[in-house]
Every structure is written in structure tokens, then in C-alpha cells.
Design a protein around this nucleic acid. Structure first.
Lengths: 149, 149
DNA sequence: GAAGATTCATAGCATCCGCAATGAAATCGC
DNA sequence: GCGATTTCATTGCGGATGCTATGAATCTTC
């Protein structure tokens, strides 16, 4: 080993919290996301928009951006695609015509009536699988999301 | 309200663990990733590869893929870019010529000598900021990453 | 009430990403 | 030992993503 350069600081990627969180996010969403995609042609972004609409009724792009972790151009594009496949519809807010009103179509509601229970059971299974570690994870995430806001 | 469709199941995106993890990952990596990008022109993928090389010396694309959460085409492309900017170099493994040997160049080592302490203090700051919630988060993540492997 | 600033949604453009295909090398099976 | 299979790395291509600019509507300020 003829290389005696100054040693680099020790740093283990696997102990790096942002990395761990990214991996955890990917692993836990993979299975469900695949179902959305394969069975319904829905991406994660689109799914988030749908969930928010299912929950909140009539909302604008801005509302969604403010509430869920998506940029507004992302919401806008997801909404466009969802409109194209007939899952949501868009009207103009009559009192402020810059604003858009997004709502689920009947077809969209039907889809969500299928999808939401799937997501729910995914969550339940996840909690069961983690056991008491889930509560710790939750406590940690709660604090983290509050701090990094 | 003339719309009495069958109600959708209640589902709160904010209680959905994969979503929470994704948001947490994004929020905690944002600040540091911006530094990498703006000051050194390094993406997150490229940074991961660099960290692994700093840690492990000479490795192949396959090694990296196996060790860190990246697809091999992603590793390959990151390596290509890093080579183009002179941060790593690539040789052929003489005993198995399919394999590639990636190593940091002196320039790459110099960069990492700057970057790693940055990442380290980012982690330290994160832990301090979360206080005892950090240990819970860690316990939860540990179990999760072990389960979803 | 009109000019300028701000808010909202979208589109343009360049880059990134994921999948499947390719090509090169090594290993397997007989 | 040689054709078939597997392993490793890269690339082509279509679609996704992120940033910035644009355009329309509203609000502010005087």
C-alpha cells in the first residue's frame, strides 16, 4: 500500500440520519406505490393530491401546496394528469378567478374508495410489523417534523 | 350541499408513515444538499458515491450498489459525472475485467476532506436539535430498516 | 382609479431518472 | 472446450422533475 495521503475523517453513511430517513421512506412506500402504479396508473405525487382531495373536498392548487409537501408546479402537473384521466375536475373560483377549484369526479371518488382502504391496511400492517418501535419512530418523527418546518 | 355520495373512508395523509418519512428525509437533507450543490456542484447521488469511496477505498459499481441504497445505473451515472469533473478515477480490475475499480483522485480526497466535516457537524446539529427524540427516532429507524430489507 | 407590486397557476426548457436493452467478460453445464 | 447462462457496467429513450419565466387576476398605494 504505497499510498500515505492524509487520512480522511471517518464518516459512516449508515449513521447519517437524512440518508436513513430517505432509505426508510423509499422502502416503506415501494410496495404500495407499485400497486397504485400498476393497477391504477397513479404516481405518488398524484396519489397525494387525490388523498388531499378525498379529505378536503374543494381546494385550490395553493391550498394543496400549503398543506402537503409538494411544490405548486408539481401539484399543478399532477392535477393536469388527473384531469386528463378523468379522476378530478377543475373549475374557476368565481370570487377570485386566479384560483382554481379542484374536486374529485365520481370516477375519482370510486377510485379512492378502493385506494384508501388499501393505504389504511398498509399503515396498519406497518405498525404491527414495527411493534413498539413504531411508537418510538413516531415520537421521533413528530419532533423532527415540528423542528424542521 | 346537494352532494350525498357515499362517504369516503377517513384517511389522514399526515398520519401516513411513508409520507412522514419522505417529508422528514427531504427536510433534513435540504440544507446540506444545497451546500453541496451550490459550492461544489455535487448532487445527492454523487455525494453518496463519494462518501462510500472515502470510506471504502477501491470499490466496484456493484459493491456500491450492494452497500448503499442506489440502483447500479444510478451509481454508474454518478461515477461518470464524478470522473468528468476529476473527482474520481476508474480502472479495470485485472483479475475480473468486467469489474471496475473506482477511487478518489487527490482532488476528490481534498473535496471530501472539506465535505465530510460539514456532514458530520450537520449530523451533530441534528441530534442536538432533536434531543432525546433523536434516540427514539433512531430506535424506530433501526427496527424499520432491519424489517424492510 | 390607475401604475406597480403581489399572488396564483401553468408552461418552457434543461436535466434527471427508471426501465429495458446492449455489450463485454466470466462462469456453468455437459 | 465450447455453447448457454449469468454477472457487471453502461446507454438509449421516454417520461418525470425542478427551476424560472410567463400570463392572468387581484391587491395596494397614492
Amino acid at each position: 500500500m504505497p499510498d500515505d495521503l492524509p487520512p480522511l475523517p471517518e464518516f459512516d453513511l449508515f449513521g447519517f440520519t437524512p440518508y436513513r430517513l430517505a432509505v426508510a421512506a423509499k422502502r416503506t412506500s415501494e410496495a404500495l406505490a407499485r400497486q397504485y402504479r400498476e393497477r391504477f396508473g397513479i404516481s405518488i405525487s398524484e396519489w397525494r393530491v387525490l388523498v388531499h382531495l378525498a379529505h378536503s373536498g374543494k381546494v385550490s392548487v395553493r391550498d394543496i401546496e400549503a398543506r402537503i409537501a409538494m411544490e405548486k408546479y408539481e401539484v399543478s402537473r399532477s392535477a393536469k394528469r388527473l384531469r386528463e384521466v378523468g379522476l378530478i375536475e377543475r373549475r374557476q373560483n368565481p370570487t377570485d378567478r386566479r384560483l382554481v377549484i379542484l374536486t374529485l369526479t365520481p370516477k375519482g371518488r370510486k377510485l379512492m374508495a378502493e385506494l384508501l382502504p388499501l393505504a389504511k391496511s398498509h399503515q396498519v400492517a406497518l405498525e404491527a410489523r414495527l411493534g413498539e418501535a413504531f411508537d418510538k419512530l413516531e415520537a421521533g418523527l413528530e419532533k423532527l417534523l415540528e423542528e424542521f418546518d
